Simulated assay, not measured.
Amino acid sequence: METDKLKLEKIAEKYDPSSPENDFDFWLIQFDFEALRKFLIGEKVIEMGCGRGVLTEKLARVCKELIVVEGSKKNIDYVKEKLKSYSNIRFYHSLWQEFKYEKKDISDIVFFSGLEHISKDDAEKILCTIKNWLRPSGRLHIVVPNAYSLHRRVAWYMGIIGDVHEFSERDKLLGHKRVYDRETLFKELKKCGYKIVHWEGIFLKPLPNSMMMQLNENIIRGFYEVGKELPDYCAHIYVVCEI
């Protein structure tokens, strides 16, 4: 049986959202950060997973101290080299389930596009654990893909998927284990003792990534702005929590 770290290394070989030519998720990361920036305290921050470091670099620019917990050695080596000019980042090669942090001094935990990669039991354990790292008034920032996003709704009406919570081919490629909606995410967070202080939808995505990549930036940004009016139809759900 493959170990979790080996699976992560295989995903790291395939998934590269470091440019808009590589993957449409490049744009989603930009918009996720725009939402996050309004609520980020930014003093001592833990980023749960760095991927190719697109969000990591943005965080490093605005945070005093950044701790990155990443399960793929390939990703860590890539991002370390890419961001070697930043002195405020520390990297830890660890699965989230295994990472130990003994202090209670974190201002923000940024957990973007991560929960969908782990089982329900592991997600609840991790959420309950990381709660103990936050200082008073500290914040947990969560982003997950939305089961009820416009492109999933369209795929369901077309008969491509049997249910909006069903795994798409992309979900399988990226190793997703669950497809969240707002209700299931809120329920999980409240069960682990979090207070939800803000949520919003990010980006109205009408088409699959491969087709969205054919659009120019003005159209893409137009869909981002319209998404603010239709949060339950957006591609991502962003939630800010306190304890």
Rank of each mutant, 00 (worst) to 15 (best):
residue 76 I to R: 05
residue 88 N to L: 10
residue 42 G to F: 00
residue 138 G to H: 14
residue 5 K to H: 04
residue 240 V to K: 04
residue 89 I to G: 10
residue 144 V to N: 03
residue 138 G to F: 15
residue 201 G to W: 03
residue 45 V to I: 04
residue 236 H to R: 11
residue 203 F to M: 12
residue 126 I to R: 10
residue 131 K to D: 11
residue 103 K to Y: 08
residue 97 Q to R: 12
residue 88 N to C: 08
residue 147 A to I: 08
residue 94 S to A: 14
residue 70 E to A: 07
residue 114 G to C: 05
residue 176 H to E: 00
residue 20 P to G: 04
residue 147 A to T: 08
residue 19 S to Y: 05
residue 5 K to R: 09
residue 66 L to Q: 01
residue 239 V to D: 13
residue 113 S to K: 15
residue 214 Q to M: 10
residue 11 I to P: 00
residue 39 F to D: 01
residue 49 G to N: 13
residue 148 Y to A: 05
residue 183 E to G: 03
residue 124 E to G: 03
residue 204 L to Q: 10
residue 86 Y to E: 07
residue 134 L to F: 01
residue 158 M to H: 01
residue 101 Y to D: 00
residue 94 S to C: 11
residue 76 I to Y: 03
residue 4 D to F: 14
residue 65 E to F: 10
residue 175 G to V: 02
residue 8 L to M: 10
residue 45 V to E: 02
residue 154 V to M: 13
residue 28 L to H: 15
residue 136 P to M: 06
residue 154 V to Y: 12
residue 241 C to L: 05
residue 223 F to V: 01
residue 149 S to N: 05
residue 77 D to G: 04
residue 83 L to M: 04
residue 39 F to Y: 03
residue 159 G to Y: 02
residue 133 W to F: 14
residue 14 K to C: 02
residue 237 I to L: 09
residue 142 I to N: 11
residue 17 P to K: 13
residue 51 G to P: 03
residue 200 E to D: 04
residue 162 G to L: 03
residue 40 L to F: 08
residue 29 I to R: 11
residue 148 Y to Q: 02
residue 57 E to Q: 07
residue 49 G to Q: 13
residue 173 L to V: 14
residue 12 A to D: 15
residue 99 F to L: 02
residue 167 F to N: 06
residue 104 K to S: 09
residue 235 A to W: 05
residue 195 K to Q: 11
residue 99 F to C: 01
residue 84 K to C: 11
residue 231 P to V: 03
residue 65 E to S: 11
residue 94 S to I: 12
residue 86 Y to P: 06
residue 150 L to C: 06
residue 176 H to N: 01
residue 187 K to N: 09
residue 180 Y to N: 10
residue 98 E to G: 02
residue 76 I to K: 04
residue 117 H to K: 08
residue 79 V to H: 08
residue 38 K to C: 02
residue 177 K to A: 05
residue 34 E to K: 07
residue 96 W to E: 03
residue 96 W to H: 07
residue 145 P to C: 06
residue 157 Y to N: 03
residue 215 L to G: 05
residue 98 E to A: 04
residue 212 M to C: 03
residue 98 E to M: 03
residue 216 N to S: 09
residue 10 K to A: 01
residue 78 Y to R: 10
residue 179 V to K: 15
residue 151 H to M: 12
residue 11 I to S: 00
residue 242 E to S: 15
residue 124 E to I: 06
residue 9 E to Q: 05
residue 185 L to G: 00
residue 118 I to T: 02
residue 199 W to D: 08
residue 144 V to L: 05
residue 129 T to W: 01
residue 232 D to A: 10
residue 129 T to R: 07
residue 87 S to Y: 14
residue 129 T to H: 06
residue 23 D to A: 09
residue 126 I to W: 13
residue 166 E to A: 11
residue 180 Y to H: 12
residue 228 K to D: 02
residue 112 F to I: 04
residue 7 K to I: 13
residue 81 E to K: 12
residue 152 R to W: 14
residue 96 W to Q: 04
residue 201 G to P: 02
residue 137 S to I: 01
residue 64 K to N: 11
residue 214 Q to I: 11
residue 120 K to G: 03
